[in-house]
Amino acid sequence: MNREGALVCCAAVARTYGIGETAIVGLRPTDCSVESGAKIALVGASGSGKSTLLHLMAGLDSPSSGTVSWPAIGPPERLRPGPIAVVFQGPSLLPALTVLENVGLPLALGGRSDRDAKRIAADALERLDLGDLAAKLPEEISGGQAQRVAVARALAGEPALILADEPTGQLDHLNGARVIDVLLAAADHSSAGLVISTHDPSVAERLQSRWEINGGELRNHASRAPAVPFEARR
């Protein structure tokens, strides 16, 4: 399975942690792909393999077997920072940087000047109504605010593929809904692919597609979104 123009394409990808009798299967052999503009809810219970699949798609982890490719993006070394943005499940802000600096970090890592990175980061924070927190340190804001800042960081670079691992897990209903709004709007704005792992049905309902994963096995993963090559958007 290698769809030309797909943002990410997994062919018989599997992931096993450990070896021998203690080995744990994180993901069974899976074929899937995400096209530009796709909005996918990855649904499953805790420990079902959601995060494993997202990490493989993000190129953060290597599969035990099978192949992950990014036809519309390029080789693995071009994935981040830039084309793929990840919103992590746990705290992921750098404690020594302010909120503004944290949001601007991927941009700076991508080669933007310090001034540009901060300007774009400030815009991203404003979009999530987080402008007031710009000068705060991560330890000075709440867990929910920190998760929203992580979303702002993911969106600041206008990625082609947004992979969000339970982004609303630490948020109340209102703020969770707001984060999903922002993610959807950002994906619409740049025709980015969006995959959100969740076990919140209300979040899953708002996305076009719903992939279910159980015991490391992925089901119902046909994307309804049109395939738009990443390069074509530029």
């Binding site: 953060l60 994935l79 981040r80 920072p81 830039g82 990840v86 992590f88 992921s92 802000l93 750098l94 404690p95 020594a96 970090l105 991927p106 890592l109 991508g110 960081r153």
Partner: peptide
């Protein structure tokens, strides 16, 4: 003690040089 920060930066796309 700051390995986590460095790992996050790597996950965000930081190169070894950076």
């Amino acid at each position: 003690e700051r390995r986590r920060s460095f790992a996050i930066a790597t996950a965000l796309g930081a190169r070894r040089r950076q």
